[in-house]
Design a protein around this nucleic acid. Structure first.
Lengths: 142, 142
DNA sequence: CTTGAAGCTCTAGCAGCTGAAGCTTGTAAA
DNA sequence: TTTACAAGCTTCAGCTGCTAGAGCTTCAAG
């Protein structure tokens, strides 16, 4: 019999977020006290921990839904879970490439301006003139 | 006299997005034809290009607002622009670290499951058991 | 003069939460 | 047993940065 607050504390999830997960169907509707407060079981804690862990690894809620679906049916082939993880890895690697490009660009922008005026500011200059850009960055970095 | 479509094409911004930038005050309200269609000048194109470029470098719209504010007042010291860029770089570097950790973790998760069943799936196992995690990842990776 | 692309406004929706208002319940100490 | 107050509840709105769609009007070329 765990309160929502306990779940929240044990998993580092905000109380509202727990309720939100219930609302979107990631967590089941738990039992209630007579007064209407939620009371959870250990299994709910595990499930929430699973969700949070997956979120920390960057999985979307939809991907997590799939993963939970899979782990609820242990007979199936695990190829699906594997492919979800691979998809995820691919995304992460793409983001890494983009961020590395941005890092390079930003470092290049930041030169000592030691009291100079905005008119001569390298930072603004680089932003103003895309052609100065070393890196082809055509997508919005997230 | 540029149409919104021209601006859109030249900067790779969706038409809706241009109107959105106007709505939130990043772009000025342009002149209109008698029929009510927007007509822009070259300066608007430059400003939009600046905005898009900054977005591509990962600056938030708020940061961009500040940068535009600065570049509109060329007398000022450029220390502010520099510090915005540095802040941005710091953020990028933090994200990089996180993503690198995630990449490591995901790679570790993905082992050949060669037709195995979900019950033995490493991917799900790792997600289920946080303690298997090599990396301390306590924040949500975006 | 007609056609069709491109423009317009307005509204709603996406992910993934988060905060606040205003109320009720649970629990532990006095 | 009463009372105080933390923690729960629901509902709604808002965040970022767009994007899509409905349903209409305007512009420009042929």
């Amino acid at each position: 019999m765990l309160t929502i607050g306990t779940l929240s504390r044990k998993t580092g999830t905000k109380v509202q977020t727990v309720r939100y997960y219930e609302q979107i169907g990631l967590l089941r509707e738990p039992g209630r006290t007579e007064g209407g407060q939620r009371r959870y079981e250990e299994a709910d804690l595990d499930r929430l921990a699973f969700i949070r862990h997956a979120r920390q690894l960057g999985f979307s809620l939809d991907a997590i839904r799939e993963l939970l679906e899979l782990s609820d049916h242990p007979q199936q082939s695990c190829a699906d879970a594997d492919s979800i993880a691979r998809r995820q890895l691919k995304q992460v690697e793409q983001r890494l490439l983009r961020l590395q490009a941005l890092q390079k660009e930003l470092k290049r922008m930041i030169v000592e301006c030691s009291g100079g005026q905005v008119a001569d500011c390298r930072v603004l200059e680089v932003l103003r003139d895309h052609s100065e850009c070393l890196t082809a960055h055509d997508d919005i970095g997230s």
